[in-house]
Design a binder for these strands. Structure first.
Lengths: 188, 188
DNA sequence: GCAAAACTTGTATGAGCGTACAAGTTTTCT
DNA sequence: AGAAAACTTGTACGCTCATACAAGTTTTGC
């Protein structure tokens, strides 16, 4: 039915990602986003109602991408170690680990405490990733080490994203290899 | 001579930290900061000239704090391992590792790419920390592992700060102990 | 083919912000 | 004590931006 609506939504979200990457979350305007999509500022309002809603939809797209990447890699994994590797490397999937998306992700993070909707999404996602990680780590090391190793892995992933957002360069394949090496270093 | 100027500068920077923590870097106004300092927005302009300059001064204070904490801990360190521990734990110093300052740090990071002055400060600081880390790590492990371990440590520190900024709780002593454990886990 | 629905856009509105400025108050210096 | 310097503040200006709206254009359904 309303295929146009879906297509336009996707286009506008993509434009929002690019515009935020270019101008920054704090300073990006509706006109910036509209320009990136070859549309008018008013039409964004027609589809999303408000800037805040657009940002929420954009965040949801990134979260969905991470979820998909995780499930895709989790599906063929048989052992606990395979599953752990799947969860960790999903963060550096080709579809996700790009300069624009890392930049956006970090900016959403840092603004989450001041926007209830973003804050909620952020909390849910973080809890999900952490429980996935923890479930596998528990089976691979003595219980008194599990929490520390889980925290280290999560901090590592966040830190790499942060660095990528700053440096404007992403090498997904290399990042996945580094992540795998860290897993074997932490859980020999 | 102009002691008042110095005192007021410090007060206003402290107020800026609290105001940014409360309202967010993106939305904080000069009035917010003024209110936090029991002053008027105009007087901030008198001391700092512009909002951007105030933010730069605030960032510089955080960087100075990290530098001081690092040097304090580096001074009594004798071995390479002691020095490495000093550099890592300095990030979780009682004076630095507080919710407000973690929050501010993360927000400055994420806005750095869009503000040349912040960007410059950020780059300089990061390079300094990294070279300090790398110098010590090199002496404690085979050379082919040094780069990866340095990156892991830096990412870990960034990740812990990010988490602290979100969760609004900092336990500096515990964070330092966790960091020490990670160092011994990575460099047995 | 045509009415209605879906979509697009230019423009107007109003709010919020940083900053300049001039007029006051306090402090310093001799 | 009194002039000058340092400091403070209320107010006003100019600007930017999100959003509302009404007037157009295109697409859909029959």
């Amino acid at each position: 039915m309303s295929r146009i609506r879906d297509i336009r939504n996707e286009e506008l979200i993509t434009a929002a990602i690019r515009a935020v990457h270019r101008h920054g979350y704090a300073q990006v305007t509706m006109s910036d986003i509209a320009q990136e999509a070859n549309a008018s500022a008013a039409s964004i309002n027609y589809y999303f109602g408000t800037k805040e809603k657009l940002m929420e939809a954009t965040m949801r797209r990134l979260l969905r991408l991470l979820k998909t990447a995780t499930l895709d890699r989790l599906h063929p994994a048989k052992t606990a170690r395979d599953r752990l590797t799947a969860i960790v490397t999903a963060n550096f999937d080709d579809r996700l680990f790009t300069p624009a998306q890392c930049s956006l992700w970090v900016q959403f993070w840092s603004n989450a405490p001041y926007a209830p909707i973003l804050s909620r999404l952020h909390r849910i996602n973080r809890a999900r990733v952490q429980s996935h990680l923890h479930a596998e780590v528990k089976q691979l090391c003595p219980p008194q080490n599990a929490a520390a190793i889980t925290t280290t892995l999560q901090a590592y992933m966040d830190g790499i994203w942060l660095e990528a957002a700053q440096s404007e360069t992403c090498a997904p394949a290399a990042a996945r290899m580094d992540a795998k090496k860290l897993v074997t270093r932490l859980l020999p």
